[in-house]
Design a protein around this nucleic acid. Sequence first.
DNA 1: CGAAATCTTGAGTATAATCAAAAACGGTGG
DNA 2: CCACCGTTTTTGATTATACTCAAGATTTCG
Lengths: 267, 267
Amino acid sequence: MGVQSLIVGIQNPLALEALKLSQQPEHSLSALTYRKLLAGKSAAGKLTPEDIEVMSSLPIHFMDIRADQDIVREGDRPSRSCILFEGLAAWWNLTAKGKRQILSFPIPGDIPDLNSLHLDVLDATLSTLTTCKVGFVQHEVVKTVCAEYPRIAEFLWRSTLIDAAIFRQWVTNVGGRSAYSRIAHLLCETIVRLQAIGLSDGVTCSFPVTQQELGDATGLSIVHVNRTLKQLREADFLTHKDEKLTILDWAGLVEAAEFEPAYLHLR
Amino acid sequence: MGVQSLIVGIQNPLALEALKLSQQPEHSLSALTYRKLLAGKSAAGKLTPEDIEVMSSLPIHFMDIRADQDIVREGDRPSRSCILFEGLAAWWNLTAKGKRQILSFPIPGDIPDLNSLHLDVLDATLSTLTTCKVGFVQHEVVKTVCAEYPRIAEFLWRSTLIDAAIFRQWVTNVGGRSAYSRIAHLLCETIVRLQAIGLSDGVTCSFPVTQQELGDATGLSIVHVNRTLKQLREADFLTHKDEKLTILDWAGLVEAAEFEPAYLHLR
DNA sequence: CGAAATCTTGAGTATAATCAAAAACGGTGG
DNA sequence: CCACCGTTTTTGATTATACTCAAGATTTCG
């Protein structure tokens, strides 16, 4: 049974749900989980209950992926996109001199490679940083849904626009800020995004990112990251132990980071 | 006469064309010009002649804007997007310490603030670097067209995804490359994009960007930009005189830049 | 428990920033 | 056409930020 026959049934979400469950019994994720992630997304408010039901009912191929695996690679021509349900991922690029530049840290609820829906070839690589639970949705399915449910199309388009806004801010961050502000900014951004999806209370969060990875994300050497983090700790802004980040002085960190969260387009 | 009544007539492009001409007689731009710009866009091939006719016939408010003017500002909530027909623009951000980070250089054919179609508040400022000819299209019009012409919707969505791909590459550029490569990369990118829309033959192009602006785009001081450009000239890769850029050794420049144009998603 | 990965610190170096000032250029008006 | 003014480019000298190399401490994981 191909995607086409699934698409035919898309007017009836419950039928799809049944299909999905019959196909992926071992990895089914409750629609509730998905709804909860959606709830954390800005502008999800514009979606009707029917829209959410449709999105929760798409035929999804679930997969648990271990840490440090490539989900999709630069040069790939995917016919599906992945939704991240659990875990932390990273988009990255290699420069000709072998330096790895991390471009963003997708978090649960993100559809990191939704860009491949309308771009044939991937221009970066998406990897897991931790064990991840992801779901793959065929592009054809997404396109059919977009054609039938304009609010979902707008929601998805908008989510790619927010990704772009975050990339813009990263340009400003690595191009225009000191090491100190740069790292503080990345931490502010991450904790605010995690808070939006309920994975942080704004004070503490799981943060399984090595200093090497922080350096790759901010364009700094690992040694300099280490010294800069130490400064941030000594300023009593935060602690980072056992993959757990705790903010001790949010106002101070925000000021150090020059952080203004409007670009995240939350709320 | 509001936008709504225009939208009603959208099934008939010629009627719209007539409306447009009657409204903006002094600034009408031939559909040919627009078609020519579209032709330079990748994936325009997926558009039918009807699609192109529709896009050429949208009610557009044309405007000539002098150099160094803000088209839209961070914090604005635009109800329209602008199409750049002539001239060079720049997206930019100010850091808290007053440093200006340029995020991209929109060129003719681009719809730089199409992101505002689905994002309420702008997170950066768009300014002209030279005198520009721009056309404003109401968001409501674009949304109506997208609903009726899915190929146009895909084309526009895709164009915002390419913008995002360019932002990603800029993160890599400012975060991961030396000053020398960084500037070379920016020049390679710009000339290839200009070539795609017929504003360069791949060897020479108009390049009215000051060294200050180059520095703001690459995250380098003006002094360092000057010395680095000198190096590139002394390596006989290029000349830059009278706002005119000439590539003397494309292969050499590409190697210096570590430039791989796949991310531009041309062709 | 042992090996590998990660974090931390020190020392020396390189890249790029800042400060300062002169030269060249571009546009304007007399 | 030339003199003038503001902008842009260029160069020199000094300083600061961040990188590299190296090695030891700590943590994580099998």
